[in-house]
């Protein structure tokens, strides 16, 4: 049967396109405009060319913040993706325990970001916090407001608590979508549990894992509220992530030009890394089919 090529269906996405244009493209264009000008308030702008970009690119504080951010995102992915897959594998597949597990896991996802930050700020406090105080009673010198390492542990633990459930839910739905025939065939072939995981479950999870990696990377790379509430970027600059630095520039110092140049570089980095992830994971899928 000959397919009739007809692209008129594209008109159906016109409303979404207009919405995205309004909410994303126009602000992005404004940011590009701001990034080449100096603002004096009251709508007075002076064209400065590439000055802000040169400033931002040679700013040591930003290099540090970028490395910190990459370290944080890498750590978050390294912990949350394997942990999420493991928990999803361990979850029951039928019976009353399924909704109980799903609801318990979904709870952290429902908590607003600033509340997550407040919860952990209290939880980790040495004087009254359950975690901080317990650790001190056990003789561990834990203090996330003074020790950079402890601040990092707190922020990473918080993100793991907050977002691993998302990976679990995605993986769980992926696992449930595998037809039983695959498992039956594996049992007939006498495949071990690890063989079933590596040759059936993991390849079948590729789609949801792509989404999980992309979502977790983007969210952790742009994380702001939770570390801002818990540590405020400190101690020193230890947890001063990119968006905290950026907000400081744009809102507190009102340096719109440098902040805009910074935003564009930030945006380009996110775009590049997402594109690399997306391409890599979708290409692996195509290689299998051949």
């Amino acid at each position: 049967m000959d397919k009739i090529p007809n692209n008129r269906a594209w008109f159906l996405i016109l409303p979404v396109f207009l919405l995205v244009a309004f909410s994303a493209l126009i602000p992005l264009m404004a940011v590009v405009n701001y990034s080449v000008q100096d603002s004096f308030g009251g709508g007075v702008w002076i064209f400065v060319g590439d000055e802000w970009f040169r400033d931002v690119l040679t700013d040591g504080r930003l290099h540090d913040a970028l490395l910190r951010q990459l370290g944080f995102s890498g750590l978050v992915l390294l912990i949350q993706i394997p942990l999420g897959v493991l928990i999803a594998l361990a979850m029951p597949s039928r019976g009353w325990a399924v909704p109980v597990c799903l609801i318990l896991l979904a709870l952290p996802l429902l908590v607003p970001f600033n509340v997550v930050g407040t919860i952990w700020q209290l939880f980790a406090r040495v004087d009254i916090g359950l975690m901080g105080n317990t650790l001190r009673e056990m003789g561990v010198e834990f203090n996330y407001t003074d020790d950079p390492l402890h601040a990092w542990i707190t922020v990473v633990l918080m993100d793991v608590w907050h977002w691993t459930p998302l990976v679990v839910l995605l993986c769980y739905s992926g696992l449930r979508a595998i037809p039983p025939a695959f498992y039956q065939a594996a049992r007939i072939d006498g495949a071990s549990r690890s063989a079933i995981f590596w040759y059936i479950e993991l390849p079948k999870l590729r789609g949801v894992l792509t989404i999980a990696v992309l979502l977790r990377f983007m969210d952790s790379f742009m994380i702001f509220t939770e570390p801002f509430v818990v540590t405020g970027g400190g101690p020193g600059n230890a947890t001063n992530f990119l968006s905290i630095v950026l907000t400081n520039w744009a809102i507190e110092r009102r340096d719109l030009g440098p902040a805009a140049a910074f935003s564009i570089i930030y945006f380009l980095l996110v775009l590049l890394i997402c594109w690399v992830f997306y391409t890599a994971i979708t290409r692996i899928g195509q290689a299998d089919k051949r």
């Binding site: 264009m29 404004a30 405009n33 701001y34 603002s39 709508g43 702008w45 064209f47």
Partner: peptide, 15 residues
């Protein structure tokens, strides 16, 4: 569009 602070350079870029 005044708030967008257009310049000839960025306008040319987007066009």
């Amino acid at each position: 569009f005044g708030w967008m602070a257009w310049t000839w350079v960025t306008g040319t870029f987007f066009l």
